[in-house]
Design a protein around this nucleic acid. Structure first.
Lengths: 228, 228
DNA sequence: TAATTACGGTGTATAAAATACACCTATGAG
DNA sequence: CTCATAGGTGTATTTTATACACCGTAATTA
């Protein structure tokens, strides 16, 4: 939460669900709260919206203030409106979600936060307020999304291997995929470009690819069917 | 807008985009405003949310107060947050949308409304505030939705003919569909049931169907791919 | 009242897409 | 040195999507 309550609309806040993919698992960014209520608890980064601010701008300001991450593309998930969700007074909150590649961003402990950390989604601490709800809804949104829009660009390093990409899809969808069919589908989309480089950091030599940004954005705009 | 400003959160409102299908065209329900601002203009039914109210409840209350329609299922579209969207002070509004069959509901002129009327979406009056934006976003949502979830149950009378259903899809998608392929697809979904009755009201005799509510809801929950 | 038009209803052949499935090779680990 | 692990590759089958034409009946109109 923002540390100053003037200039804000006290009934409207934003909470951010930032997903990252690392070490073969899906993670989410949490902050340890430095302020009441729920001081000392791990929670979603969030805060109040200012009186003359757009929600997108608020989400980015708050994310930067709390975690140091700036200027990312976030998307509205839903409004969360339980009457007693915030213990002090009535606050509606807008869930915002984003996908980022952890290695592309430096996280720093910011305003109102004691600590900022990535958590595996399979191993989350108990979250305060209705943050578990917000997280669940966002995850569901991500899982629906992946069937209709490409993901990966935001979650993987610039250059990545096909096994990495496949693993990402498997983690998000929660099921194993057939290697050859996965590759066939991906390659049929003109979504990725072979860099003709080999990944040597990995245990095995694997070909490095990058996204074809133009096509990626086209598919993202227009949608497609990715029934896996 | 609600006619009393106490007990409401002055920064948060709901505006409803109610779609109906009648006379072979898609329509939307508008009210003629009886209060300032924009008195006398045709606008979306809307109003402020009360301090202890859930958004869904607010949307239903407001819709009933303004149009008489009660207890329908509405879905969040997005938040609309332009700083000057409301001329008097800062108001964020939640767009809510619904599909209903006009013949199933009686519309009545309510609080703060001079008149309530269905408008063909191809022939809308100039809307005040950002209501055109809200309408456009909702229509886009409907057009996306129709590809992944069944529609029709909410938009057609209890018993309907296949040409009617096809026409609905054509109007929503904005393109003509092949009759035989359309029927093949629909019948492959176990979505509708033949009532073994004949529609005589229509110019031609056509078989009447009804939705298989159980399957309809299942498909609605799980989603499907309806690429037409 | 005969002719014409409009609409409801039906099936098949072809193309495209999804799926199931198995082995080879190189490397790192023990 | 051997074994386990992971990257990489192609084909046959099934399923789904698409393109396409005619008949019968009832309403309309000449």
């Amino acid at each position: 939460m923002s540390h100053i309550l003037k200039d804000v609309i006290r009934n409207l806040s934003v909470d951010c669900v930032i997903f990252g993919f690392e070490n073969h698992s899906l993670e989410v960014l949490l902050i340890k709260r430095a302020r009441k209520p729920s001081i000392g608890r791990w929670a979603l980064p969030g805060g109040f919206i200012k009186k003359e601010e757009l929600v997108d701008d608020a989400a980015n300001r708050i994310l930067q203030e709390t975690t140091g991450i700036k200027n990312i593309y976030m998307e509205e998930v839903a409004i969360f409106d339980k009457v007693d969700r915030y213990p002090k007074w009535r606050v509606f909150t807008l869930g915002y979600f984003a996908l980022i590649s952890p290695e592309k961003y430096l996280i720093t402990t910011g305003i109102d936060t004691k600590e900022v950390k990535w958590f595996k989604i399979s191993d989350l601490p108990k979250l305060p307020f209705d943050h578990q709800d917000i997280f669940n809804t966002s995850l569901e949104k991500l899982r629906t999304r992946v069937r209709y829009r490409p993901i990966g660009f935001e979650l993987l390093p610039k250059k990545f291997t096909l096994p990495q990409l496949q693993k990402l899809y498997e983690v998000v969808l929660g099921k194993k995929l057939d290697k050859r069919n996965f590759r066939k589908k991906i390659s049929g989309m003109n979504l990725i470009i072979n860099t003709n480089e080999i990944d040597i950091k990995n245990k095995r030599k694997a070909t490095l690819y990058m996204f074809d940004k133009k096509n990626y954005n086209k598919l993202k705009r227009e949608g497609f069917i990715f029934e896996l």
